[in-house]
Amino acid sequence: MTDSESAAAVEAPRPSRSGRGGKRERLVNAAVQVFHEQGVEKTTLGDIARVADVPLGNVYYYFKTKDQLVEATVDAHCDQLGTLTAQLDRLPDPAARLEALVAGWVEQRETAARFGCPFGTLATELDKRDDGLGQVAAKVMRALLDWVESQFAQLGRSDAPALAIELVGAYQGMSVLTHTLRDPGLMAAQGERLQSWIDGIAGR
């Protein structure tokens, strides 16, 4: 698979910024964007209403509190992951799916350099709270780990759970470094190393 085919295969689902769709959908899409760019604590419902182009008063019809909107945002990330993995599952073999996943991460390196991993930053922020939202966010990370583990298992690896943690952990680590150093080239270089690592595991 070529780099362009890999990137095309896994272009991550992104919230629409077109303004189309119902008000609730627009609010959730805006929250995904603004929480990523600003963080939950710094974001107000007014910020989200402005990006969604929805009157602030209408926000409370759909979400009584910001925490309810945070939960809806986690659900949106879960839906985006489901869409992505379904797209990846159309590829011919597990190694190609994993390599395409990595290519998709690398494709978002400019965004990662500016704001960090779209979901990892949210999960880290929520984990510092004592209201249980960190556990809500954990279900998305668990779903990603489970899918990656299933790919390694299909490659016949008995250590599939450990390999899944290694791959997802490597991505989160390179996202943090890419963001901290504001260097998208770092993610590109590490992505190539992960591609070679997957090739080695697949016996290519």
Rank of each mutant, 00 (worst) to 15 (best):
M1K: 07
M1F: 13
S4Y: 12
E5I: 07
R14I: 11
S16F: 00
S16G: 10
R17V: 07
R17K: 09
G19F: 04
G19V: 00
G22C: 07
R26Q: 13
R26F: 01
V28E: 02
V28I: 09
N29A: 11
N29M: 06
N29G: 03
A30I: 11
V32K: 02
F35G: 05
E37I: 07
Q38Y: 15
Q38K: 15
G39A: 12
E41F: 12
L45F: 11
L45Y: 02
D47K: 12
A49R: 04
V51K: 01
V51T: 10
D53E: 13
V54C: 05
V54S: 11
P55K: 08
L56V: 15
L56S: 14
G57C: 10
G57V: 06
G57K: 00
N58G: 04
N58P: 11
Y61C: 09
Y61V: 02
Y62P: 04
K64P: 06
K66R: 07
D67F: 02
A72M: 09
H77N: 02
H77T: 03
Q80V: 08
Q80H: 06
L81S: 13
G82V: 01
A86S: 13
A86L: 14
Q87N: 06
D89Q: 15
D89E: 15
D89C: 12
L91V: 06
A95W: 00
A95N: 08
A96Y: 10
A96F: 00
A96D: 04
A96T: 14
R97F: 03
E99F: 01
A100N: 04
A103Q: 03
W105I: 15
E107H: 12
Q108F: 02
E110W: 11
E110F: 07
A112C: 10
A112H: 03
A113F: 11
F115V: 12
C117I: 02
F119Q: 13
F119L: 06
G120F: 04
G120R: 08
G120T: 09
K128D: 07
D131F: 07
D131P: 03
G134L: 11
G134I: 11
Q135P: 02
A137D: 08
A137C: 06
V140T: 10
R142E: 12
A143W: 13
L145Q: 10
D146N: 09
W147I: 09
S150R: 09
A153N: 12
Q154P: 13
L155W: 01
L155P: 08
G156Q: 01
D159G: 09
P161R: 02
E166Y: 15
L167H: 04
Y171G: 14
Y171M: 14
Q172G: 15
G173H: 03
V176F: 15
L177E: 08
L177Q: 04
T178K: 14
H179G: 05
L181M: 12
R182D: 13
D183M: 02
G185D: 05
L186C: 07
A188Q: 00
Q190R: 11
Q190Y: 04
G191Q: 12
S196Q: 08
S196C: 03
I198A: 06
I198M: 05
I201L: 13
I201P: 05
I201K: 00
